[in-house]
Amino acid sequence: MSMPKLFSMPRLFRKTLFGVFFLFGVIGVSTSLLSIYAVDTHLSKEYEANSKGIAKTIADASVNILLNSNLTALQSLIDQFIEIQGVSYIYITSETGEILAHTFVPGIPEEIKAGDVNSTTTVERSLPGMGDFIEVGSPILAGVAGTVRIGMDTGLIALKIQRAIGQQIYLICIIFVVGVFAAIWFVNYAAKPVDGLLNFAVGLAREQSSDGAKSQELLARNDEAGDLARLFLHFSRPTDGHGKGPQSGPDRSKE
């Protein structure tokens, strides 16, 4: 189906077609926005919950190590957790706030040093040269032995959201393209009898014969186009000498 044919479509149906597009666009955009919100909220909560789980695991595993002052083993422990996707940094503080083990390179950022390193609340951090993070904490031995804090890369959440939205947009685009072709086809299908009716009416106005195959096909239709064609034919016949109209009106019995 070509574009010129689309634009040769009756004006009445063009409006309908554009109405369909508009409605489709509104549905697509609103669904996408809702989806973004749902994915963002869901993934962020899941991310935070996972981070807290990791922090608690490290905190539980650190108790004996910290009490034995074995900082080498403590570092070895957090080095294993830093390999988990999304975990960007880990640091462990003593009960006095001294950072005893960490994974920062080339050094501990000033923002971390200046912050409340023994806090266990979740905070959002932006570290220069490193990126944006959600930082969660977990107390070690109820906080009397220290605190574990983990920085999770929010860029990874953004990437996951982008990926989820991208997949949705991809699906919507496919539905849109199929929908457009389907709408054009249906509108053209609906517009075809109207086009024939118009040609029929013009033919009658020019007093051309209505015996052609296309005219007969139109007159044989049992829908509104057929009714109108028969009505046009009825009115186009000459009146009798008594000033009465055509001898017979449109046949509604076929409806």
């Binding site: 900082l71 080498t72 083993a73 403590l74 570092q75 070895s76 080095d79 083990a101 994974t103 920062f104 390179v105």
Partner: peptide, 11 residues
């Protein structure tokens, strides 16, 4: 070195 070796020396 940011690992157990470095931490051992740091400690």
């Amino acid at each position: 070195q940011a690992d157990a070796y470095g931490r051992s020396g740091w400690a």
